[in-house]
């Protein structure tokens, strides 16, 4: 998901700025790469690439990976409380998929010559960002349905264009991810439909969850195109193909009829069909909230990061022991041979 991540300032960002003297050879290469990308060809791991391209990719892919991993937490909050065994299995499989996505993406980033542990350290130290959407709390079971419907829905919309991005390993990871994502949105919507057929209390839960997630979901597409800092290079390099605002509009247009089928109200009085544009008009987004959460002042920023750090630290002895055993075993095998 999460083109948003590449549009927000982060400490890593400055390093990616172009500049410094380039050799003639590099300039030639760079022109060649730009031409390749313009022709829709892929860049592969061992190909020469401009340093700015490599760094942008590392940042985007690793932030994407972090988002998948941190994204396991808000939904994970409800696994032990899922109301039926079928829903428990579905949710487990879904959250597990997100872990898999994180893994595929870390692997794609590793083809660029970075170590996964270093990327993880950057997350844990607060240096790397992840999608802000996961800093919102999951307060009732319907949140699980709404996350599938709106958050995964927004993510899928963000991710499909990335299946054709210029960097081969990233594009291939995205193809695998998009295939797996296809059930995420459907299970969420199905969960909500079922609850809407239930008691009035259950319908209230759904409406409450929609009220809380609608605007944050719209923010997932990132700042308005006019305020987006990284888009230029990213679009030129084909690691971003559609603008934030275009995707957001596409999302709203798809969600409005779905909300109607569900029988809930989207919390935006300004939502109105615009015949001339052929799109739904929607109200202004509260960007101050967006920036507050991005800058660490959301409900769950601290908790999410603390959870990840704790899982990592609690696992240190396990990872070390596994390495130690593997080394001992290799020695033993050598002696036996």
């Amino acid at each position: 998901m999460y083109t948003q991540a590449m549009d927000i300032p982060s400490p890593e960002r400055d390093e990616t700025a172009r500049g410094g003297p380039r050799s003639v050879r590099e300039a030639e290469y760079e022109a060649e790469i730009d031409a390749k990308v313009a022709r829709g060809e892929f860049i592969e791991a061992k190909d020469w690439m401009p340093e700015a391209y490599r760094k942008t990719l590392v940042r985007q892919i690793s932030q994407h990976a972090h988002s998948e991993i941190v994204g396991m937490l808000p939904e994970g909050n409800w696994i032990t409380r899922a109301p039926t065994l079928k829903r428990k299995a579905i949710l487990l499989a879904k959250v597990q998929d997100e872990g898999g996505h994180g893994m595929y993406l870390y692997a794609a980033a590793e083809t660029l010559g970075v170590a996964r542990d270093d990327l993880v350290d950057a997350l844990h130290s607060g240096k790397a960002k992840y999608s802000s959407i996961f800093n919102y709390p999951t307060l009732n079971w319907a949140d699980i349905g709404v996350i599938g419907w709106l958050v995964d829905g927004a993510a899928i919309m963000n991710q499909i264009p990335l299946c054709r991005c210029s960097y081969g390993p990233y594009a291939r990871a995205m193809i695998r991810i998009c295939k797996e994502e296809s059930f995420h949105q459907r299970q969420g919507y199905d969960l909500l439909l079922t609850m809407m057929k239930g008691t009035p209390e259950q319908r209230d839960l759904v409406q409450d969850a929609v009220n809380r997630w609608w605007w944050p979901a719209l923010m997932m597409f990132g700042p308005h195109d006019s305020a987006s800092t990284h888009s230029g290079d990213s679009i030129k390099w084909g690691i971003k193909r559609i603008s934030n605002d275009d995707l957001r509009q596409k999302f709203v247009d798809a969600a409005v009829p779905q909300a109607r089928v569900l029988g809930i109200t989207l919390p935006d009085p300004a939502l109105k069909w615009n015949e001339a544009r052929g799109h739904w008009d929607f109200g202004p987004i509260d960007w101050s909230e967006f920036w507050n959460v991005v800058n660490g002042h959301g409900q769950c920023n601290r908790e999410r990061l603390a959870d990840r750090v704790q899982a990592w630290e609690d696992g240190a002895w396990v990872r070390e022991a596994a390495m130690a055993h593997a080394e001992k075993q290799r020695k033993r095998d050598r002696l036996a041979a």
Binding site: A93, Q96, D97, G100, M103, Y104, A107, E110, R116, A173, R176, A322, M323, H325, A326, Q329, R330
Partner: peptide
């Protein structure tokens, strides 16, 4: 794709658990 693992046995298991789900 790829996985991290300390030894071949676990690499196979991790691959089995992650990829053909």
């Amino acid at each position: 794709g790829s996985v991290h693992a300390p030894d071949a046995k676990m690499a196979l298991q991790n691959a089995r658990d992650a990829y053909p789900r």
